[in-house]
Design a protein around this nucleic acid. Structure first.
Length: 268
DNA sequence: ATGGTCGAAGATCGA
């Protein structure tokens, strides 16, 4: 195994349907650890053998029928984090975590799939939006009391916090994913003690997206993207950052997800 | 302002 850790986060939108493109990602970009969201597969049907054959010997996953689901695929040994909170009283498979045992020492890794929040940005009339806001608040509170070093948070946070994380700040201010109640809460979570590893490499003044809707005739031409997927790290890991890649070409792979993989490289 | 397209289901629901 080469020196350094290559970490990927990807909302794959059905793991079983997209095993072929996952193999393509693995073959072309050789990640050491992949965190997936929206696997949409119950645990008994999880394709563990196929993933082990790809070289990911260490697996941790939590899925359910039809919706949600998260998974960590690793070439390094991992110890799953037990007894993580049951956010918002729901057992809906939106968070798993693990200690990753790297040659340089353990790193704590969290994989999140934050609720999308429905269409109407009003917690009074839209319970999905209320759930989303509450989820972020609960997670924020939880991390304030947890150790905050050698920790990495990744996932589909379903919020694009910065002006240039969306194609039109003005037109999306009242669209779920970019409303002030969401972006304020995401910033509060970040400010518990994390660093935005993607923006470490790309200044806030530059557009940066990880998701393009299926509902555009030509995603590349219209380019109405949003940065919904994130990699956050504790400040002690910043000196170990060596690179970041948004795998845009994956949006054109055969039967693509609407999200593309995000790679972060570490000298760990 | 609207609708557009996916995936898992096996009708719609969630995104």
């Amino acid at each position: 195994m080469p020196l350094g850790m290559r970490l990927v986060t990807w909302n794959i939108n059905s793991l079983r349907l997209r095993l072929p493109v996952l193999e393509k990602l693995d073959a072309t970009l050789a990640p050491d650890i992949i965190c997936l969201q929206e696997t949409k597969v119950p645990d008994p049907l999880f394709p563990a053998d196929a993933l082990r054959n790809m070289g990911f010997e260490h697996l941790h996953y939590k899925g359910m029928k039809s919706y949600n689901g998260v998974a960590i695929l690793s070439r390094h040994p991992i110890t799953p984090l037990e007894k993580l909170p049951d956010w918002h009283g729901k057992e809906d498979c939106r968070h798993i975590g693990a200690q990753v045992h790297l040659p340089s020492g353990p790193v704590e890794l969290h994989d999140f799939y934050v609720p999308a929040g429905g269409d109407i940005p009003d917690p009074e009339t839209n319970p999905k939006f209320a759930h989303k806001l509450a989820f972020v608040e609960e997670v924020t509170e939880w991390f304030t009391t947890r150790k905050r070093d050698r920790t990495v948070l990744v996932g589909d946070f379903n919020i694009a916090p910065l002006e240039h994380d969306v194609w039109s700040h003005k037109q999306l201010l009242n669209v779920v994913s970019h409303t002030p109640p969401e972006t304020e809460r995401l910033n509060a979570w970040l400010n518990v003690g994390f660093v935005d590893a993607m923006r470490h490499f790309v200044p806030a003044s530059e557009k940066l997206y990880t998701w393009w809707s299926y509902r555009n005739r030509d995603w590349k031409k219209s380019n109405r993207g949003r940065r919904l997927d994130h990699v956050w790290i504790t400040p002690d890991l910043v000196p170990d950052l060596t690179g970041m890649t948004v795998v845009r070409e994956a949006r054109d792979w055969d039967t693509p997800s609407d999200h593309v993989p995000v790679i972060v490289d570490f000298s760990l």
